[in-house]
């Protein structure tokens, strides 16, 4: 049980980047500037749930030069884990009997000697509030709705600002959720000037409690479909991805219930889409992992550097139409 590496300062003495950092990060400093690079090198990131999508994210932020990255996933590596994962060598003598976090950590360490990558043992659903204070960013993947809500609430209760993200890939579809609570950042204006902006995010609980009839007509169908599936898995006590095509009738019934309750036309959640999500199970499509992990990497860099418009508060990608869409789901009305 190793700490998140608070204070694992890798930058030069107070403030300045070392010559080594300037040489390594040259091209990206040209994109986001020195200040952002300094902030990155002081930030601590926790990722719970190692899979093809989160390893893409981990690779991106290790390369970008965060201060530290902690991985939490005690599950022992199985052959299924190899599918979309380039951090696990397909050799049982290497991964056999070891946790996903351990094996992934071992590979990630090599990506950037200036970033401290470590393993956190434990169960994400039991994470307590104080533990979270070690981190600036918490990313959850393939967690049950219960765990997502639990950790999201815990992040919000801390006096320290902790950004919370979930990321999930279901074969050709993907979803990212973002909760930055209150986030101030520098927005670039056309013409080169900048302006200070502040955004207020709803919690995950608030966002998914919005009556569907309140949402704009063009809201992505994936948003609704994912809520149906999540709701079904929660009530059936299933782990994410355990619901399959054999559950199609029950899931479609749940769709009807939810649509009736919230006055949404059922056709807004096409059966074919529900079928695709169920058929996906735990399968991840590597190109989609790369896209989601890239978008999340960018979002985390924006959040740490307080530069650039962050996603508020859902992002969807679907190979079927090729769109990467942002949905701004507001908190429910006060009364």
């Amino acid at each position: 049980m190793d700490g998140g590496g608070a204070g694992a300062g890798v930058g030069g003495s107070e403030g300045e980047l070392t010559a080594q950092e300037t040489a390594l990060y040259d091209r990206q400093i040209r994109v986001w500037g020195v200040d952002a690079q300094k902030r990155l090198s002081k930030s601590h990131v926790l990722v719970c749930g190692m899979n093809g999508t989160t390893i893409e994210f981990c690779k991106n932020i290790v390369l970008a030069g965060v201060g530290s990255l902690s991985l939490m996933d005690d599950h022992v590596v199985t052959e299924d884990d190899l599918n979309a994962n380039f951090l696990i060598p397909p050799d049982e003598s290497i991964y056999g009997g070891r946790s996903r976090a351990e094996v992934c950590c071992e590979s990630l360490v090599d990506f950037n000697p200036m970033v401290r990558v470590s393993v956190e043992k434990g169960d994400p659903s039991l994470i307590d509030g104080e533990f979270l204070d070690k981190f600036d960013i918490v990313v959850l993947s393939r967690a049950s709705l219960k765990t997502k809500l639990f950790i999201n609430e815990n992040c919000r209760k801390r006096s320290k600002h902790i950004a919370f993200y979930t990321i999930d890939c279901k074969d050709s579809c993907g979803e990212i959720f973002v909760d930055l609570q209150k986030h101030s950042y520098v927005q670039k204006k056309p013409g080169g000037s900048t302006e200070q902006q502040e955004l207020t995010y709803p919690s995950l609980q608030e966002a998914i409690s919005v009556p569907w009839s309140n949402l704009p007509k063009k809201t992505s169908k994936l948003y609704f479909a994912m809520r149906v599936l999540e709701d079904y898995e929660l009530s059936e006590g299933r782990s994410p991805g355990e619901t399959t095509l054999s559950d199609i009738h029950a899931v479609l019934a749940r769709r009807k219930d939810m649509c009736d309750k919230m006055s949404l036309n059922e056709s807004r959640i096409p059966t074919t889409l529900v079928e695709r999500l169920l058929a996906a199970g735990k399968k991840e499509h590597p190109p989609v992992c790369a896209i989601l992990g890239g978008i999340l990497g960018q979002e985390v860099i924006k959040s740490i550097s307080c530069k650039g418009d962050p996603v508020k508060n859902f992002f969807y990608f679907d190979v079927a139409d090729g769109k990467g869409v942002i949905e701004d789901i507001p908190p429910p009305p006060a009364n």
């Binding site: 040209r30 790369a290 890239g294």
Partner: peptide, 23 residues
């Protein structure tokens, strides 16, 4: 950057673009 005509580059965009190429 100007003299060397250096292209700004980050890992995330390259990862996203590579995913789209494969699709």
């Amino acid at each position: 950057g100007v003299a060397g005509n250096i292209v700004h580059a980050v890992a995330t965009t390259n990862a996203i673009i590579a995913g789209l190429i494969v699709i």
